[in-house]
Design a binder for these strands. Structure first.
Lengths: 241, 241
DNA sequence: CGGCAGATTGATTGGGGTCAAGGGCTGTGG
DNA sequence: CCACAGCCCTTGACCCCAATCAATCTGCCG
């Protein structure tokens, strides 16, 4: 039930058997399920709990008054949401499900218990925060410096790598529940242009994308196109560049 | 000597006299000075110390192989650099001075001493990290969703607010050591277009910018243009919206 | 079988990039 | 005190990537 979470946290810090048992216990405690395309938490709310994605995909986003929407990160199975949730008076962004999502809610007390009981898990959560910060910096670069073709290639590399690190690919194929509008909101492009750019990526033999499944046909070339270097994800061991 | 730092950290957490003395002591310990336009720390290096900017402006950036450069944040007096420095094996970005910079270097031991001695200062540093993360999300939105005019207005609002929070404006004027090329690297625009856009902002009576000094002529309108809401900076008290 | 979300296509426009050439300030050295 | 160098800033002409507007198509579901 919590393999993805175990794998994800294990990629950041060596975990003992006790650590793993603790993760299982915590994650089993307050499990919820929500349908696709619903808000899990909303900007401006008082934060009440930290979210751990057990199953399914979600995204964090911010909406501008005029309706423009920017996705600032994707959450895949194993991803903890923001730990900072407990420090802020108000959330400054929303989290919404993309697919049906199963997630655990960690209260402040749960969180404190973890940091007290297990330095290993605490370190892994902290390292995950840093990884997230690093991903945000990379997104700034992606959107600020790369053209549509490179940008989408980079996003796909990043997500594919994250999924791979929690065992959700077979090396070349994975689920792909994102619509072209989602990709547009994440990359600062329009859905129409995302469509044309994806076609180009297909025509160039880099990937196949249909029926909510992604197949990476030429990972090396896709990475080179996107200027993708997995180091910024800070996933231990997995530097199979 | 450390007023900016005191003010900055004080904006995140209530500090006692002891806390302030501690900050003074730490920041006085390992002070360095560096000329304008030099790297303070470089991507790929093993992190050795956390940087606290005491005086002058700096920027964090990442460079792509082909020379394109993206600034991912500006550091002004009072700003701590990344605390995560101690967790990562390798830095994933560089920090460079813009003006002449005076800064303190915090070793891991100094950092541990702070967290042990003063929960208040530790909380302030942690809150600063969160604020930085929030700024990064805002930059993603800025670059992803806004046009050049809005984008530059937003950047100026953000920096002006940060400077104001550490007493480095008189309410409408402040130092402005950034070249148009710096603004370009931060906003994902070209220097030429930054130039034309700044002229438009001047023509519209929003600001004056000359001789390395910025004057905000119409803060309300500048904020409205940039869609700037200071909340995401999480600066306590200063919500003079 | 209608209805709807998402993908696709075409035609046109426009924001911002690119290239290239001046202009102005400031510091330095003669 | 002047001259020159260098770094910025500014301007003009032109181009192109991506946005916009508007259908049409497809697959899926009730």
């Amino acid at each position: 039930m919590t393999e993805a979470l175990q794998l994800h946290l294990g990629a950041f810090a060596r975990l003992t058997g006790d650590d793993r048992a603790l993760i299982d216990k915590i994650a089993a405690k307050n499990v919820r399920e929500i349908g696709p395309r619903r808000d899990i938490v909303r900007e401006g709310e008082k934060p009440r709990a930290m979210v751990l994605i057990l199953d399914g995909w979600a995204a964090t986003y911010k909406q501008m008054r005029d309706g423009r929407r920017q996705i600032t990160s994707f959450l895949v199975p194993g991803d903890p949401g923001d730990a900072n949730v407990f420090v802020l008076a108000r959330l400054d962004h929303s989290v919404a499900s993309i697919t049906q999502v199963r997630y655990a809610e960690l209260s402040q007390a749960d969180f404190d218990a973890i940091t007290a009981e297990s330095p290993g898990v605490a370190r892994a959560l902290w390292a995950h925060e840093l990884s997230t910060a690093s991903i945000h910096r990379e997104w700034v670069i992606n959107i600020g410096q790369r053209n549509a073709y490179e940008r989408i290639a980079h996003l796909i590399c990043e997500l594919f790598q994250k999924l791979d690190s929690v065992g959700l690919t077979d090396g070349r194929r994975c689920d792909w529940p994102l619509t072209q509008a989602d990709i547009a909101d994440a990359t600062g492009l329009t859905p129409v242009h995302v469509n044309r750019t994806l076609q180009q990526l297909r025509r160039d033999g880099l990937l196949a994308l249909a029926a909510r499944k992604l197949t990476v046909l030429d990972l090396a070339r896709l990475r080179s196109v996107g200027g993708f270097n997995p180091d910024y994800l800070h996933l231990a061991g997995k530097s199979d560049r």
